[in-house]
């Protein structure tokens, strides 16, 4: 589904990714871990198409198509979804309007009929219930005045509505207490399917107790320096990231 080959990326001439390789197949869940500044979030943003990153080499194929030449919205319409570490507040933009415009843009791209207001409302309420999100938050401005947990649940609600092929969750666990992590993880787990791939970007192992990945990668210095199964995450939790950096240096 996703093939990343020797990807190098800079921000203002400063390299942030230096030869990243990754292969993700449908149905798989990958975790990308790494210390602060290792390039995890940059990688997520480059995939989603955020401005400010300069791709200096390598390629990214999404279902065989060159992802990097597509506009941000085109990537989303083809089935890529990024849950942000810091969901953006949109004062004055109703969450319902936002979710409906988004879903209908993506449905139109998939050749599916547009949902009318009534159909959409029912769907949104069902998904909100699933995410244990107060339906009142649907009527409020997007993320404005939401608690940290509500913002993250609102991200997963979007994911549940949009049903992407590839979901990238950037530090979705950061700032959440254990109960909130469990709710978010339950939501993500209900979306696991043989057709869908998930990339979890996280600093800590604890999210992986709830969403179990098939593969774990360690990102350091802008490259994946080690890959393994879930045991690697447990080892990282125990020993920290230092030993990997030392091993790579050696």
């Amino acid at each position: 589904m996703l093939t990343v080959k020797n990807l190098t990326v800079s921000i203002e001439a400063k390299p942030v990714l230096q030869g990243l390789d990754l292969e993700v197949m449908a149905g798989e869940v990958h975790a990308i871990m790494g210390p602060n500044g290792s390039g995890k979030s940059s990688f997520a943003h480059v995939l989603a198409g955020r401005g400010g990153y300069e791709v200096t080499g390598g390629e990214v194929l999404f279902e065989g198509e060159d992802l990097l030449t597509l506009d941000v919205e085109e990537r989303a319409r083809r089935g890529l979804f990024l849950a942000l570490q810091y969901p953006v507040e949109l004062p004055g933009v109703s969450n319902l309007v936002f979710l409906r415009e988004s879903l209908n843009a993506i449905r139109a791209a998939r050749g599916e009929p547009i949902l009318d207001a009534v159909q959409f409302m029912k769907l949104a309420r069902d998904k909100a219930t699933l995410m244990q999100l107060n339906p009142e938050l649907l009527k409020r401005s997007v993320n404005a005045g939401f608690s940290g947990g509500e913002k993250k649940r609102n991200e997963i609600l979007q994911m549940a509505l949009l049903e992407p092929k590839l979901a990238i969750l950037d530090e979705t666990d950061s700032g959440l207490d254990i109960d909130a992590i469990r709710i978010v993880a339950d939501g993500v787990n209900t979306l696991r399917s043989p057709q869908r791939a998930i990339i979890l970007i996280t600093h800590y192992q604890r999210l992986l107790d709830y969403i179990e990945p098939g593969r774990v990668h360690v990102l350091s210095g802008g490259r994946i320096v080690r890959s393994g199964d879930k045991a690697l995450a447990v080892e990282l939790e125990r020993k920290g990231y230092g030993w990997i950096a030392e091993e790579v240096a050696a």
Partner: peptide, 18 residues
Amino acid sequence: QLFYLRSRGIGLDAARRL
């Protein structure tokens, strides 16, 4: 904000309007 809206499939024109 524009990036956020576009990353949800909403085109640039619609994002500006919203």
